[in-house]
Simulated assay, not measured.
Amino acid sequence: MQLFANKVAVVTGAASGIGLGLARHCAREGMQLVLADRNAEQLLGVTDELRADGAKVVAVTTDVSDPRALDTLADAAYKAFGQVDLLINNAGVLISGLSWERPPEDWQWILNINLMGVVHGLHSFVPRMLEQDTPGHIVNVASLAGLLAAPLMGPYTVSKQAVVALTETLHYELASIDAKLKTSVVCPGPISTGIANSGTSRPVTSTVAREANSELMSFLETGIEEGMPPAECARIIFEGIRKEQFWIFTHDDFKDSYKARADSVIESTNPEYQIYVTQE
């Protein structure tokens, strides 16, 4: 996908963080927007901002964990604009804690949003995008955790590694039918967003876990606070879309860690955890 002006973009999780950066970038590219987020108030604020700048925007309050909500979003997009050219499955949340102490409800919560939200997006949009028979692009936002595991990040890591696997599978499937749709998976490093606070309503319980989790969240919050601005992240993602890159990385300095993990797999050595810190 090389040209974006007057094309239609759908962005989930569009009211904050990376999603907001992407929505603003889409508008600057002259795209028509369908924005989704579960926070209706924030979504309205973003919609008003972009409309004031001249963008055509449809906003739909959406819980991506509900497949019917994604059908509603797709219906709204096609009713408003008659097509979708760029689908960005971005909505995501984060919780941390010891894997065996997080109750099944917490695992299900994060998987329903981070993984099933992408599945629902594909199910609702891909058939219609294929029927258009026009060039298009699907972007699934994963994380550096999609390729690297870390302690206390079990539910998040599992969900993001699943998104990577799902997107790679989708890439092969679309290629096998000579579809005009291309795919990308984004594995961002630290981006300045509020994701570290998204799971605060689901606190850890044991004393040991709370202490370890407090240290981790402090580390994450500092790294995220000092992270790349969402606007720069969006620029990199669009650069990758233009090049039809499958893998899109925001921080190249993590590639040594990706390679070390791949080497460990090939050489059958036991994994050793190192704190992954960007040099930027």
Rank of each mutant, 00 (worst) to 15 (best):
V185L: 07
N270R: 13
A165Y: 05
V93H: 03
K259A: 14
L144D: 06
I177H: 04
V141D: 11
V141F: 09
Y273L: 04
T200C: 09
A59T: 08
T207Y: 11
D106M: 09
I110W: 02
H137E: 14
N114D: 04
N90C: 14
S184K: 09
N6E: 15
L73V: 02
D66M: 06
I18T: 10
G45S: 11
T62N: 10
K180A: 08
S159L: 02
I241P: 03
E29C: 12
A52W: 00
T183L: 01
I248V: 04
A260D: 13
M153T: 00
A175P: 12
I224L: 11
T278W: 02
A212S: 08
N39W: 00
E280V: 08
S65R: 08
G154K: 00
G154L: 02
K160L: 00
E226T: 13
S206Q: 01
R261G: 04
G199N: 08
G19R: 01
D253S: 10
P230G: 08
V93I: 15
S268F: 10
T72R: 14
I110S: 11
A179L: 03
S218I: 14
V8L: 02
T222F: 09
R210K: 14
A15I: 05
R261Y: 06
L22D: 10
T61L: 05
L3D: 15
Q279K: 14
T207A: 15
I275R: 15
I237A: 07
P135W: 03
R242W: 09
A142E: 05
T169R: 12
S192Y: 07
V84D: 10
L170A: 07
N6S: 15
V139C: 08
T47R: 11
K255N: 13
I18N: 10
S159T: 03
A55R: 07
V277M: 12
M228L: 13
D85Y: 04
L148E: 00
E29V: 09
V118N: 01
S65M: 02
N197M: 15
E49N: 09
S268R: 14
P127A: 02
F219D: 10
R210P: 05
L111P: 04
G199H: 06
A91Q: 11
E29Q: 15
F125K: 03
F238H: 07
R68Y: 06
V93S: 11
A15G: 11
A234L: 02
K56W: 11
S96R: 08
V8F: 01
G154C: 01
S218D: 15
E131N: 12
F249K: 13
K7M: 03
G54P: 07
S16A: 13
A179W: 00
A5P: 08
R242L: 12
V118W: 00
